[in-house]
């Protein structure tokens, strides 16, 4: 189970969000939508301490910590239970596709090189890049790089994978292959929280869609309800705007 209780983040005097509560069950897939600049990505980054939350409690599996008193060890433990997929892929430029995936298994989990490589090759197979094991990021397309980014997150065997707008930096031609891989993970009931503007994906894949605006969770529910029958006026306005450009079927 993943739980956020009263998570608060401020940058100086500016409050990004206050008192956010969010709970996920094992195997649940949540998509967070909302206008730009409402703190969706910052919230995601707080869950694995890429941003330090200012108040609240984070629970991931058997680890629960008070963010105001988290020790360095607890932060490391939290990060080992979560994995992150970045908007700009953030692959290690000095490492091959295989080594990008294996790095955490070797350095963090302490697997032997041969064990890690065996698992790394399985993952490459699953993300459809078995033939690119020895390719460096610079020689891969955007879609391939992001699939390696997802592969790296899969290798972490995390309780939850956090996706921060995984397709918004991609050329349109590569979006589908990345979404297809995420759908495959969803079918395997990998717990995930996805911040995305891909409404079609949210509709098809999410168990629950969370709408955020101005640092607040305005409403949440199954996509069938939230997309067809949004209660809050802000949700209605947002959906009207995005769905006018990209109708969801």
């Amino acid at each position: 189970m993943i739980a956020l209780h009263g998570i608060t983040k401020r940058f100086g005097a500016h409050s990004v969000f206050e008192d956010i509560d969010l709970t996920l069950e094992q195997g649940e897939i949540i998509v967070i939508i909302g206008p730009s600049g409402t703190g969706k990505s910052t919230l995601l980054r707080c869950i694995n301490y890429l941003e330090t939350p200012d108040a609240g409690r984070l629970t991931v599996g058997d680890l629960s910590l008070d963010v105001t008193r988290a020790s360095r060890q607890e932060v490391l433990a939290l990060r080992r239970r979560t994995a992150f997929v970045f908007q700009n892929y953030a692959l290690f430029a000095n490492k091959t596709a295989l080594d990008n995936i294996c790095e955490g298994m070797i350095v963090v989990d302490g697997l032997s090189k041969s064990e890690a490589h065996a698992r790394g090759r399985e993952i490459l197979e699953r993300i459809g890049l078995a033939d690119k094991a020895n390719a460096y990021p610079a020689s891969l397309s955007g879609g391939q790089q992001q699939r390696v980014g997802i592969g790296r997150a899969m290798a972490a065997k995390a309780e939850v994978i956090l996706f921060d707008e995984p397709t918004s930096a991609l050329d349109p031609e590569w979006v589908d292959e990345v979404l297809a891989l995420m759908k495959q993970l969803a079918l395997e009931r990998q717990t995930m929280i996805v911040v995305s503007h891909e409404m079609q994906f949210a509709r098809e894949v999410a168990d629950r869609v969370v709408f955020m605006d101005e640092g607040r969770i305005i409403e949440q529910g199954p996509p069938s309800e939230l997309f067809t029958n949004p209660r809050d006026e802000r949700t209605q306005r947002f959906l009207r705007k995005v769905l006018a450009n990209n109708p969801v079927v």
Binding site: L50, L76, T82, A83, F84, N88, A90, L91, V107, R152
Partner: peptide, 27 residues
């Protein structure tokens, strides 16, 4: 060295010194 690689290394649970040794210094 691209800041996002630092975040990526931290996000998979690497320590500061592992990050320096394996990602930043080689590049």
């Amino acid at each position: 060295v691209d800041r996002s690689q630092t975040e990526a290394a931290l996000s998979i649970g690497m320590t500061q010194s592992q990050l320096m040794r394996r990602i930043i210094l080689p590049q």
